[in-house]
Each structure stands twice: as structure tokens, then as C-alpha cells.
Amino acid sequence: MQTEDLIRALAADATPVKRLVRPGRRTITWLTISVVYIAAVVLFMGLRPDLSTKLAEPRFLIEVGAAFLTSMMAAAAAFCAGCPGRPLWERLAPLPFLAIWLGSLGEGCWRDWVGSGPDGLTLQLDFLCFPTIVAVSIAPAVLIFSMLRQGAPIAPVATTALATLAAAALAAAGLRLFHPQDASVMVLVWQFGSVAALAGVGALFGRRLLRWPHPRIT
């Protein structure tokens, strides 16, 4: 087909389109639905018995808050990545919060090392963290991927990595409210590690999950 003919065919197919909602509003929509879902899961699983004490600890608040903000900023970055022409730095938006989250866990490990020596960093198997984070993050992940498919797949690998990070980080934040696991090294390896691994897996499926739509033209 000649390109000039293609232009005529595309113009003939140019029905009115609904403009994509801006990334900020889409982030709020996703976050609201996902937080309600995570809250329901937390209530279903039962709040950890010492939650009121933990909520009074600044370290706990910083860690959970950083995980939540990582999730929110990763979702916003993923939605921005689906809009052509937006600045690239937006894709790095979750990094500061990810660093705070990692830093708070690292500081906890250091504290445990100083207080208890090598015993404070004993790593044990925790068969709950990874499967729980996967199970809890499935619904937010499905929701964010369905929303991302409305955008343009200009950076599919980064977009799916950010989207998986958003869903997994939110699940990890929720997990801290019902799973009484406070050893920093355990949280670092099994919870933060699960989130990082899931984001990596998400990146691997980027090109398969987000493809360019093929318009049907006559």
C-alpha cells in the first residue's frame, strides 16, 4: 500500500476517541481500589497483635510509609511511561522512596548487629513472605496492567517493572500489618527481596504484555 493511500485510509477510520485520563488521576484510581483491597485482605488475615505498639515506633512508620510511597510513585511512573512525550526522569520517581525503604531496613540490620552481634543477623527460612506478597499483589497487578494497556507501549520493559514494583510494594506494606516479622534482615531478604525479584520478573514480560495495537483499516 502506498503511504498516501494509508493516510487516506487512516483518516477515513478517524472516529472520535476518548482521551487517556492523566497519569495522576489514574494513579489515584488504582491506589484507592488497591488500598481498599489490601485493607480487606489485612482485616481478613487479622491485624498483628502488637500493631498499636508498632504504630508508635517511628522506624516502623518510616519503613511502611516508604513501602507505600514506593508503590504510589511506581504506579505514577508506570502510567507516565505509557504517555509518549513525557520526561524520562518521571520513571525514576519511586527511587528516592525505594532508597528510604532500603535504608530503613539497612539501618535496622545495623542496629541488630550492634545490639546482638552476628546472632542479630541470623537468616531463617520464611515460607510466608514470598507467596503472600505474590498472592496479595495479584489483584492490584491485574488492575494496573489492564489500566496500562490503554496507554502506548513506548517503554514496555520499564513500564511492567514499575507496575509490578507498585503492586508488590503495596502488598509488602500490607503484609507488615498482619505478619509479625520484625527482624530487619528477614524483612530485607524475604519481603524487600521478594518485591525486587517480582519487579525483575515483571520486566521480563514487558514486551509480551504490552504490544502496539494494530488498527483495523479498510
Partner: peptide, 15 residues
Amino acid sequence: QEVLLSVHAVRHTYD
């Protein structure tokens, strides 16, 4: 032609 088809397919993403 691929670019034109892509522009057409994602024209709703332009703000």
C-alpha cells in the same frame, strides 16, 4: 507506515 499506524492506534494518548 508503521509510525503512522502507531500514531493512529495511540492517538488517544496525546494530551
